[in-house]
Amino acid sequence: MRLTLHVWRQKNHDAQGRFVTYSMADASPAMSFLELLDVLNEQLTERGEEPIAFEHDCREGICGSCGVMINGRAHGPEKGTATCQLHMRKFKDGEVIRVEPWRSKAFPVIKDLVVDRAPFDKIVQAGGFISVNAGGAPEANLIPIPKPTAEKAMDAAECIGCGACVAQCPNGAAQLFTAAKVSHLALLPQGQPERTRRVQKMVDEMESYFGSCTNFQECEAVCPKGISIEFIARMNRDYLRGSI
């Protein structure tokens, strides 16, 4: 495959960024998108140029490290797929591809395609947990949890924290990420004692970094785990219930 890539290059947070154009003559349809960048980086390094910095780790779509805007869409054209699991067979020979970092005020660019997603950690630190120390847990089967409830909690818990929801949102809102964690814990009996306090603290923390949700629903469309916006409604309900 022959491809033309316009890739965002930015030396560091303070530097001015710009698109740089690269032609690739030898891409294979069986490559992953990140392997395409690997091959390009090998070529750049051999030419004595600096390779493109991009974040990646497990390359199995589960760690949430990777993620870039591909032709304006977070994680690219394939539904329910993180960048590392996107393969070049989804593109056409001769295609022009624009590659950018997540664009959000809350996620400043560190270098090229790498951004800082630390606010996600802050939201979890604000209350995204169940306060139980190691050693203090009761027997695991003491509290039965109906299968549909456990499955629903699992649907929410699948979030990989990649940040695509924020990157795609015109408002730069982090509702889907926050709602997934809030709902995962609020659905389970173990999460009840801290339910109200948790949602209030997490939402307040979220709002100190991110924009507001106005129901564009673009987050759900690009989420590699298909997290439903239903969880946002659930979070809002819990938040409201705690405020009255």
Binding site: F129, I130, V132, A134, G135, G136, A137, P138, E139, A140, P144, I145, P146, K147, A150, E151, A153, M154, A157, H184, L185, L188, Q190, G191
Partner: peptide
């Protein structure tokens, strides 16, 4: 026991 108490949604 510990993981269930933390809210790990094991299959049921």
């Amino acid at each position: 026991d510990q993981c269930v108490a933390q809210g790990v949604p094991f299959a049921r």
